[in-house]
Every structure is written in structure tokens, then in C-alpha cells.
């Protein structure tokens, strides 16, 4: 019993430490990347290449003046950021970092919560994401917060539909909801040349999903929830110090989780990167470590993509955003699903 508990504890700590620990790095990458794209210098004073800047930020957040405005609903105002972070972290429990491995003769799954739900768990936990935001907007008792929360939530649920249609198509192709099975099937190759990644099997679905994760994580060009010129900062306008930082963390965790899901479905997940096969041949036991490295580097590339898009595409207007979700992505998703099913049916006959 203690062994089991220890196993869960170790998995939890590892799975939580990787994304939370990489948030400062992502932040620094984002700032330096933004500066590079805009031909600025960016933060370069604290430590070598400004690498300690995120650390300085953490201390700043900790020592900041803590304001709890008098008009807020105090209890909900304080738990909203905590819940926000919790809801953002929950899907992590279902994401695999590497293939199931053996300790002695016992098969160990890398996910904390292996439930037989597979991707359903991740998806269902992501569906709870809007609540932290809604609670924050309502508890703040401020026009900007409320409108920001409503906007963010409406936008998240709208784009969830497009993502859902893609996931149905993915289920149809892989015939399983287990992320391990999906990765295994993607490690085969198509026509012997290219890997059977989901992106080649479902190119339209891949684009839909990609747009969807930008909207779900409220990132530019879809960060209408915090359109500065209209809403100042959206749902967290009344928040300061660490409580504000928690919202920030939740947003980045959200990005990391959705990217991991995206990479696992469409880009081979923890499947080894090219060139790693050589190492595995010489050192078979390193495979699980290399798988984790592969997954993390793929997610890191996605993170850079987020930054890249952020500084390349301007913000949408709200009606354009809703039109894109409901009038473009949803019908494309439905048609894509129909076409996928019919093509596969005809090919199998």
C-alpha cells in the first residue's frame, strides 16, 4: 500500500514539476522572442542573457502589495485564482510522458491517473477550464471583469465544438481513446517514407485543432478576454500580486497541456525524434528518457509557435472571432468528419 502511494506521489511530483518549472523559461523565451521579432533588446539585465528575470518576477509577485478591493465577494475572489490553477492542472494527470515501462515484472504507466478514459479524461478536465475564469469575473464585481469572463467563456466553449469534431475524426481513425495506442499507431510509417503522424492522416483536423487551442487558451490572436483597449485586462483586472500570477500560471499551464495533447494526437507524441534510434540501439534502457525528451522538445516547439503567432497576427474583433468559430471552423469540422468517414468506408471496401 505504501509502495502504491509512493508511486502515485512520485508521478504527481514529476508531472507537476515539469510544466510548472518550465513556465519561467517559457516566459523568458516569450519576452526575448518578442524582442527579437520586434528588433528590440528585451530583458537582458538580470543574470546572463537576462535568464534570471523570471526569478526576479517571482520575488516581485511574492512581495507585492496585496490588495483585496472592498467591493468584491471576498471568499470567491480569493479562491477563484486557486481554482483556476487547479482546473488548469487537472488534465495533466491523464497525459503520458513516455511509453508504459516495467519495474521488475510490474507494468507501470507514466500517467498519474490511468482510468481507461484515455483522452476523454483530458478532454473532460479541459472542459472545466472556464469555471475559474467565470468565478473570477463574477467575484470581482466589476464591469470589465464580468464582460471579460463572459467573453472568455463564450469563446472557449465555441471553439471546443470545433475541437470535438476533430476528436471524433481522430477516434474514428485510431479506433481507440487511449493515448498510448494513438502514439503506437503513429510510430508506424505511411508508404515506408513518412511517419504515420496524425497530421498526415487528418490535415484539416490538425489545423482546426491548432486554431482551437489558441482560442481555448485565450492567446493572441484570440485574447479578446483581455482586449486592453476595451476591457483593460478582462477577468483579472481587480487582481494583484500572487493572485494575478496564478491566473498567469494557469494560462501557461493551459497552453502546455493543450500543446501536449495536440502533439500527442498529431505529431507522434512521445515517439522518438529522428536520430534517436541510434542511441536506443546502443543503450536500450534510455528509451523512456528519450521519449520524454522527444515529447518535451515537440511541446517546446509548439510554445515557440505560440510566441511567433502572438507577434505576427493582430487581435481579432469579437464578432470576427465568433464568426470564425461558429461559421467557419464548426462547418469545416463537420464536413471534414463526414468526408473522413466516407473516404475510409469506401477505401476499406
Amino acid at each position: 500500500m505504501l509502495d502504491e502511494f509512493l508511486e502515485i506521489l512520485i508521478k504527481t511530483v514529476v508531472i507537476l514539476a515539469i510544466p510548472l518549472g518550465s513556465i519561467p523559461l517559457i516566459l523568458q523565451m516569450e519576452r526575448r522572442g518578442a524582442a527579437w521579432i520586434q528588433k528590440r533588446v528585451g530583458p537582458n539585465r538580470v543574470g546572463p542573457y537576462g535568464l534570471f528575470q523570471p526569478l526576479a518576477d517571482v520575488f516581485k509577485f511574492l512581495f507585492k502589495e496585496e490588495v483585496v478591493p472592498s467591493h468584491v465577494k471576498k471568499f470567491f475572489y480569493i479562491i477563484a485564482p486557486i481554482l483556476s490553477l487547479l482546473m488548469a492542472l487537472l488534465p495533466l494527470a491523464g497525459l503520458p510522458l513516455c511509453a508504459p515501462f516495467f519495474i521488475g515484472d510490474q507494468k507501470v504507466y507514466p500517467e498519474v491517473f490511468r482510468s481507461g478514459l484515455g483522452i476523454f479524461y483530458v478532454f473532460a478536465a479541459t472542459a472545466l477550464g472556464p469555471y475559474g475564469i467565470l468565478l473570477a469575473g463574477w467575484a470581482s464585481n466589476n464591469k470589465f471583469s464580468m464582460l471579460g469572463a463572459l467573453r472568455a467563456c463564450a469563446q472557449m466553449i465555441s471553439y471546443e465544438l470545433a475541437i470535438s469534431t476533430t476528436i471524433v475524426a481522430i477516434f474514428f481513425i485510431y479506433g481507440s481513446s487511449d493515448l498510448h495506442v494513438m502514439v503506437e499507431k503513429q510510430n508506424e510509417s505511411l508508404y515506408g517514407i513518412i511517419p504515420a503522424w496524425g497530421v498526415f492522416l487528418q490535415p484539416v483536423g490538425c489545423v482546426l485543432f491548432l486554431v482551437g487551442i489558441f482560442a481555448e487558451s485565450n492567446r493572441l490572436p484570440f485574447d479578446l478576454a483581455e482586449g486592453e483597449s476595451e476591457l483593460v485586462a478582462g477577468y483579472h483586472v481587480e487582481y494583484s500580486s500572487m493572485k494575478f500570477a496564478l491566473f498567469y500560471m494557469a494560462e501557461y499551464v493551459h497552453m502546455i497541456i493543450l500543446s501536449t495533447l495536440f502533439v500527442t494526437i498529431f505529431f507522434g507524441g512521445y515517439g522518438l525524434l529522428p536520430g534517436m534510434g541510434f542511441v536506443v540501439e546502443n543503450l536500450p534502457s534510455s528509451i523512456y528518457f528519450l521519449q520524454a525528451i522527444s515529447l518535451i522538445s515537440k511541446v517546446a516547439i509548439m510554445m515557440w509557435f505560440f510566441v511567433w503567432v502572438r507577434w505576427s497576427i493582430p487581435r481579432f474583433r469579437y464578432d470576427q472571432l465568433m464568426n470564425l468559430g461558429w461559421k467557419t471552423l464548426l462547418p469545416i469540422g463537420l464536413v471534414n468528419l463526414l468526408v473522413t468517414v466516407i473516404v475510409i468506408y469506401l477505401r476499406s471496401n
Partner: peptide
């Protein structure tokens, strides 16, 4: 496992807010 995971995730947020409450200026 789910319960352990959620409790730890929840406590991360709680602890951070508590620390800032203690350290932060009023």
C-alpha cells in the same frame, strides 16, 4: 491517484497565496 493529484495541485495555489499574504506589504 486523482484525489492525490488534485490535493497537491490545489495546495500549490494555496501555499503561493499564503506566502504572498505573509511576505507582501499591506
Amino acid at each position: 491517484p486523482f484525489v492525490v493529484f488534485s490535493v497537491i495541485s490545489l495546495s500549490i495555489g494555496l501555499v503561493l497565496i499564503l506566502i504572498s499574504n505573509i511576505l507582501g506589504t499591506k
